[in-house]
Design a binder for these strands. Structure first.
Length: 460
RNA sequence: GCCGGUUUAGCUCAGUCGGUAGAGCAAGCGGCUGUUAACCGCUGGGUCGUAGGUUCAAAUCCUGCAACCGGCGCCA
């Protein structure tokens, strides 16, 4: 049976013969004995292996460089040193593959920029092992949370012909011979001759499709990749990223915020419970105090403030900002940071934004100026959730579509949901990567996704 | 897209007033009484991002380009 380092360290009885398979992290040699750290990715810790040099040839010992893959058989014993509970007294070694002498990973710290260039090897490091174990815990927790609440998981399409209100530039999907693109009489691209008979692209959001499910099957959610062809160059944007988008049937904005709050706390608790070892590493090496901050957040209610109130709070400190806050303008990053880090010292929902800076599908408030929108802002990462109550009144929705200069005919199916038995409903989108970023404290979103896609970069 | 910064050994970096290159780690060799970022000694390793320019002389000063990083915008 295959045993992992994790089970050997936590479950296996001492003084039994065991087998460990993994990669050599470090070797420390002396005349009599050689120490190896064997890591297999199953947990943060490695297995310390002790080899009595006289039992092995020099040739074998030499091959055990950092990066070499091995199978080691031996006796699991209690360790005399405090750094690890148990260690392995190796008796047999099988080398699967040596690491060539130019292996780029070393025992010392590397820069994340360098590791990004070798994303196929960076998962062998402490940091990236920890990141992707945490990411896995969060992914499972997303499903657990919604499944426990009887939300239906919906696979929204990745290829789409409906542009979700220009949430971002879409990547085109085409089957055309790019050196010979069919043109219409007016010298425009003739999309009718393309694979789907019209212009298609990669989805920027699964929300509109989720609304269809919410207006029939009830509460539902999507969790999948989304794509934005924006030329965004920041540490918190990707061209391909994963988004969680729940949609609540018969729910208003309050329900939406309650769900979002519960959701974030659930995710944090899951990580605190199942990812302790990895979190301790982030707390120590990546973001000091992270563990305490997460523990505090796991039970704290989120603050809530309307956009209008937020603006007047910000206006009082106007001189602190490069961009002067003014009603009608979107909040700048510096404003959001001020709210989370200075005013509330914690997460905050900003609600009821002016209609002109929000999407067409958001529900108009009674004042006729604002819409039932909410953004959840977290310290350090900023906007992690954007959500709203959807406009369920046919006439108002149709009017907004026209007002935004969009074609009614493009949204006929979306309007049908309002025409035939409309219901109030609401939902939000959570940037999964930003959640991983927040939990781990990793500074750059390119370092919490296995293979980042950003403008000019799609290697691996 | 805009603003700023960086680019020197496999990696992380130093290099003063312009005078032709350094350290630690890694690799190789040797030593060492159980190490844990092990330690000690020796060896090999460089077109200083790239293309030009200034100068007797450029890693160093100037210009273009590229890659990367940080901040901003767009958002999740």
């Amino acid at each position: 049976m295959k045993t992992t380092v994790k089970t050997l360290l936590t479950e296996s009885p001492v003084d039994t013969e065991v087998v460990v398979k993994g990669w050599v992290r470090t070797k420390r040699g002396s005349k009599q004995v050689t120490f190896l750290e064997i890591n297999d990715g199953s947990c943060f810790a490695s297995m310390q292996v002790i080899l009595d040099n006289k039992n092995f040839s020099n040739e074998i010992l030499q091959k055990l460089r950092t990066g070499t893959s091995v199978k080691i058989t031996g006796k699991l014993v209690a360790s005399p040193a405090p750094q690890q509970p148990v260690e392995l007294q190796g008796t047999k070694i099988k080398i699967y593959g040596e690491a060539a002498a130019d292996y780029q990973l070393q025992k010392k710290r590397h820069s994340f920029e360098f590791l990004r260039e070798i994303a196929h090897l960076r998962t062998r490091t402490n940091t990236f092992g920890a990141v992707f174990r945490i990411r896995n815990i969060l992914a499972k927790a997303v499903h657990d949370f919604f499944q426990e609440r009887n939300f239906i998981y919906l696979h929204s399409p990745i290829i789409t012909t409906s542009d979700c209100e220009g949430a971002g530039e879409m990547f085109n999907v085409t089957n055309f011979d790019l050196n010979n693109i069919p043109l219409t009489k007016n010298n425009k691209v003739d999309w009718e001759q393309d694979f789907f008979g019209k212009m298609a692209g990669l989805s920027v959001s699964g929300q509109l499709e989720a609304e269809i499910f919410a207006c029939s099957l009830g509460d539902c959610y999507t969790f999948g990749p989304t794509f934005r062809a924006e030329n965004s160059n920041t540490s918190y944007h990707l061209s391909e990223f994963w988004m969680v988008e729940p949609e609540i049937a018969f729910g208003d904005l309050e329900d939406d915020m309650d769900l979002a709050e519960d959701f974030i706390r659930y995710l944090i608790k899951a990580v605190l419970e199942k990812g302790k070892d990895d979190l301790e590493f982030f707390d120590k090496r990546i973001s000091k105090g992270k563990l305490k901050a997460l523990e505090k957040l796991a039970d704290a209610p989120f603050n809530r403030i309307s956009y209008t109130d937020a603006i007047s709070k910000l206006e009082k400190k106007s001189n602190k900002f490069e961009f002067k806050p003014k009603w009608g303008m979107d909040l700048q990053t510096e404003h959001e940071r001020y709210l989370t880090e200075k005013v509330f010292k914690g997460p905050v929902f900003v609600t009821d934004y002016p209609k002109d800076i929000k999407a067409f599908y958001m529900r108009m408030n009674k004042d006729g100026k604002t819409v039932a929108a909410m953004d959840a802002l977290l310290p350090a990462v900023g906007e992690i959730i954007g959500g709203s109550q959807r406009e369920e009144r046919y006439d108002l929705l149709a009017a907004r579509i026209k007002e935004m200069g969009l074609e009614l005919s493009d949204y006929d199916w979306y309007l049908d949901l309002r025409k035939y038995g409309t219901v109030p409903h609401s939902g939000f989108g959570l940037g999964f990567g930003r959640m991983v970023q927040f939990v781990t404290g990793m500074k750059n979103i390119r370092d919490i996704i296995p293979f980042p896609r950003t403008p000019g970069n799609a290697k691996f």
